[in-house]
Design a protein around this nucleic acid. Structure first.
Lengths: 192, 192, 192, 192
DNA sequence: TATGAATGAGTATTCATTCAT
DNA sequence: GATGAATGAATACTCATTCAT
């Protein structure tokens, strides 16, 4: 409940999400949090650790979006809800999506921190599990589940990377439609 | 033939690609290029312009990879060669791929420079043109060509973003196989 | 009592007064003050603010020189003491005189900062007030007090601008005599 | 007739007069003159000499303004015309006035260059000569001519220093009126 | 006469971090 | 837990000047 810690993290997130890693400075974080720059070091040993915590939080949030899909009764519904909640995550937390799926600095972190690699595997494994049970139930064609997972995640990631980069200059509304049509085209190829 | 200019550009690229935008400093570039930091300003008016040229070069190189596909005799071959050359680009110029498709700073640049946006549209339009003629020739199912283009580019971009980010921890060889299987799964859904 | 702040200010003043605005660099100030260049930013947000404080201090000091004239019992004495203390200011603080009355950069500052303009008005108004009461008491001829103020300030400023610029190559002693004779010639024309 | 030399000087003047000494850079001068920065060194050995020439030109121009006063038939007229032409100089060449009478950098130059000191004496001596003959002709009260010269030059310089510094916030028109009233008040004290 | 390339010293400023309190 | 002061290294960039051509 160390409220200051959370405040720092929240300010760091806001600042990172608006200014990028370049603009993520201890001073600015401190100033936003209403404390002195040095006070941050009471809670995080350095900038690297602070950012590390931030990324972890992003992964945790992504998990929170996907997990409720497990409440659905059938594999097909769980699969479809997963795709839907993944969309929700981007629509509602576009910057967190960027943080964990796009921003290169995040990836540099991934290389150095095993726990973040593990976190990133969670979403991948979640997809794979959904796909496996869809194949088992005959909703999806017999195929390599982890490769289908790659296919879906790649499309998902790439689609929104294109979007956030301005290469798909469409409105939010259009994007949602395009997302589903794109996903359905992919499913067309893998569905039983 | 301004060799210094090219040297600077090459060093900037290397340094950007290894250290990210954060590590892209005029001093370091100069030091790598074996000139003084100020000498850079003889060739580029500032860091922004230097980076801009860098990105432009990346786009130019990507075009050079794809264009030969036009030499193929049929739409289907041109389409398949495009997918193949796109793979070649990543395999042979992985860092330039990262520069123009993944690195978020590049996208921030895109927002500011119309010419870069135009450059980025080229690859998209190239795909769309290939797809359109494939549909015309009956090789691809009747569908919205630009949306198929989005699908393919998204998968392509996302696939390698996952790869370069370390989320697909496989060897180069395996990756090529996985790429084709992934692409084929997509094509499965759109092929006639 | 923030001694460092005062030290910085003192060093900045010395350096400005000996090298001009050109030579007023944060590094040099810091070096003179025996601190690191960046330490200055703990006390002043930037060079502009530092210089601004410097000028303010100059104006404040000038006021401190003139104010005691108010202790005199008659308007005539207050007027004469003002002229005398103004001389004292130049003799004892020639560099501060230069700072606030001569150096052109100071004037550029004045344009941007309302509070400095206000400060500079103080001395002008002080003169005007002294002259007004001298006219009221019949010591000075009936005339426009603020214009007499202009006359006196102009002569005062111009006189010492000529002096500090080396155009009046005389000794300090001679200058004091010349000052009074010059002032008296002016008074000749305005005295009742 | 080395036209390039004159062009450089003209550009230097324009740039100095608009941006001050700080903004007087060889590069900017060259760019304005349409030549390369290094080309300047064909004509002036360095920045110091260039500025030196500039100041000399300013003094020369001031002389050109005053000299025609000598065409007047009587000492009184020559004296009055001198005061008038001095005003013209400021009104028409305010920046040159600033250059030779106000700008501290100019004065630093004066200290180092005997020829500039000599130039600056010319105007002073010119005043003195006018006053001497006015005393001789009985138009001015018997007094020390060079000290009257100091008085007039000080008032003149100080008056416009106050003006250019923004301490006399009046319109150009008002300033001319105020100038004459101020000068007349001075003359009141010295006139026969 | 002029240029383009290059340089070293300099500019203000920001950074993450340390330390004594 | 937190602060203010301070620091060294780094940032992009400008400067006057030199040199080979």
């Amino acid at each position: 409940m160390s409220s200051t810690k959370d405040t720092i993290l929240a300010c760091a997130r806001d600042q990172y999400l608006s200014d990028g890693y370049k603009g993520l400075s201890m001073r600015k974080i401190a100033s936003k949090a209403g404390i002195s720059a040095t006070a941050i070091y009471r809670h995080f040993s350095n900038k690297e650790e602070l950012f590390h915590r931030l990324v972890k939080k992003g992964f945790g949030m992504y998990s929170q979006y996907l997990m409720p899909a497990l409440n659905e009764p059938t594999a097909e519904l769980r699969f479809n809800k997963t795709l839907e909640y993944a969309l929700d995550f981007i629509v509602e937390q576009p910057k967190y999506f960027e943080l964990i799926f796009v921003k290169s600095e995040t990836k540099d972190e991934l290389v150095n921190f095993d726990d973040l690699r593990a976190d990133s595997k969670i979403s991948f494994d979640f997809y794979t599990a959904r796909i496996t049970e869809c194949i088992d139930e005959g909703y999806l064609r017999k195929d390599n589940p982890s490769e289908i997972s790659v296919l879906l995640l790649a499309t998902y990631t790439g689609f929104f990377a294109l979007y956030t980069s301005g290469l798909l200059p469409r409105s939010k509304k259009e994007i949602e439609g395009l997302y589903w049509r794109t996903i359905n085209r992919v499913l067309n190829g893998v569905i039983a």
